[in-house]
Design a protein around this nucleic acid. Structure first.
Length: 274
DNA sequence: ACAATATCCTGCGAGC
DNA sequence: TGCTCGCAGGATATTG
């Protein structure tokens, strides 16, 4: 579910309240999110340590701990962190509860695709997900030259597929890919090498614009996504094509199309997007 | 080497 | 009402 803006929102909610907190206990209800570590070992290594930093890297959330270990969480489709005051009541699909003096931090995951790794802080870059991580559209590394370099690497693919590739540009998922292509007026089936100079500039600008707008609106709640306090985002009210099959394009009033690309839905306006 | 497909899991809405 | 089917925002392993 969550793409860059949603992960950024959750990560900020957590960092605002949890940095400096000591993890006094961990309750594991269901261990299926844990990767490469037993539940007992996970609990033993974390209990009693302090959270020194929390930040986003790509679509993951990283908790640095004071014992030189870090927890790396990828929410995938339905992972959620919910902060509550102590003694949160357990609900369906709660997987892990981290406890501090002030907070219960409940990790809930309906579909159980989320991943949680524990690794040495100085070995974070070695995790597979980070080895070939692409450029981040919210950071200074997202320059037009770097964008063009990545576009060249994905030149033979449809632009929709290109936008989803985390080793090129990190953070875009299925919702924002459709919205970005609509904003840049480019047909999702066009191939990377087919863009004119102006279209390259349009696409580059739209990526930045849509992602930053969505962060400002605290993400998109299509169904499951919630921020760190179980509240919905606001960007779903700004969506122009995603999940709007047969509705009218806000620009030209033609009906919105839906197609399948690499097994995933793409929404677009065939009149506006050439 | 590359690109398309299957897969993990649960819930929901559509259609019968 | 209740069943089955298809679909869902992600990434990776497997297949071709």
């Amino acid at each position: 579910m969550p793409e860059l803006p949603e992960v950024e929102t959750v990560s900020k909610d957590l960092s605002e309240h949890l940095i400096g907190e000591t993890i006094s206990d961990i309750g594991i209800i269901d261990a299926r999110n844990l990767r490469g570590i037993s539940p007992a070992n996970f609990v033993q290594q974390i209990r009693g340590t302090k959270i020194s930093n929390i930040y986003r890297k790509g679509k993951t959330i990283i908790w640095n701990l004071t014992n030189n270990l870090s927890i790396i969480i990828h929410l995938r489709m339905t992972g959620k962190f919910i902060l509550t005051n102590n003694n949160a009541e357990l609900t369906k699909h709660d997987m892990i509860v981290f406890k501090t003096k002030k907070w219960d931090i409940t990790f809930n995951d309906v579909r159980k695709f989320a991943t949680i790794n524990l690794t040495s802080t100085n070995a974070i870059e070695d995790l597979n997900y980070f080895k070939n991580i692409g450029i981040d559209p919210t950071k200074s590394e997202f320059t037009f030259d770097n964008f063009k370099y990545m576009l060249k690497k994905g030149a033979k693919k449809s632009l929709k597929a290109f936008l989803l590739e985390q080793d090129k540009i990190v953070g875009i998922g299925n919702i924002y890919a459709s919205e970005i292509l609509f904003d840049s007026k480019i047909n999702p089936e066009r191939l990377g090498y087919s863009l004119s100079k102006n279209e390259e500039i349009e696409l580059f600008s739209s990526i930045k614009k849509i992602i930053l707008q969505a962060i400002m609106m605290r993400g998109t709640t299509f169904s499951d996504y919630r921020d760190g306090f179980n509240k919905k985002g606001e960007f779903q009210n700004q969506l122009k094509v995603y999940n709007k099959l047969n509705e009218n394009c806000i620009i030209c009033k033609d009906t919105i199309n839906k197609i399948k690309q690499n097994g995933r839905s793409t929404y677009y306006c065939q009149t506006c997007q050439k």
